[in-house]
Structures are given as C-alpha cells and as structure tokens.
Amino acid sequence: MYVCLCKGVTDKQIQRAVDQGARTMRDLRQEFGVGSQCGKCTCCARDVLHDAIHARKEVVHIHVPSPQGQLDVDIAYS
C-alpha cells in the first residue's frame, strides 16, 4: 500500500527502512520525505513504523505532539 502518495512511499519501503535501522518518524522524513508535503500520511506512517519496530520485538519510542507539549511513551514488546 502507498502510505505517502506525495512522495510515493509504500509500507514495504518503510518496513525495509526499519530493517536497515530507521526508528523514528524523523528517520523516515529524512530518507523518503514522508509527511513533508501534505502531512496526511503522518498517522498511517507512524502506525506502519511502529508495527515494523514491534515486529522486531523491540521497544517502541513514541513521541506524540499534544496540546500540552510533547508526549513521550515507551511501549515494550509483550
């Protein structure tokens, strides 16, 4: 599936990027430009990224911008 249409980035590309070390949305933005044009894919890209990290049985670091400021959560693999 195309996660980001603006840059033509697929979920498989994101999964491959995770295998090669990408761990944050910033990594994805730097590598593919995900979420840098219209921003609609950010949510979906984050889900795909976290699922891919989760599949590697690693801890997922989540940084969510909220009205109260940045929200930092670590979700361990269970």
Binding site: M1, Y2, L5, T10, K40, C43, C44
Partner: peptide
Amino acid sequence: ELGKLYIGEEPKEMLRL
C-alpha cells in the same frame, strides 16, 4: 478537506482497501 487515500500496489490489495 480531504481524507487520506488508501492506494494499493496490486489488484487484490486495491480491492481490499
């Protein structure tokens, strides 16, 4: 306002989306 498009890469995925 426009929502996110779910575009598949192959026929089966496209129909599913």
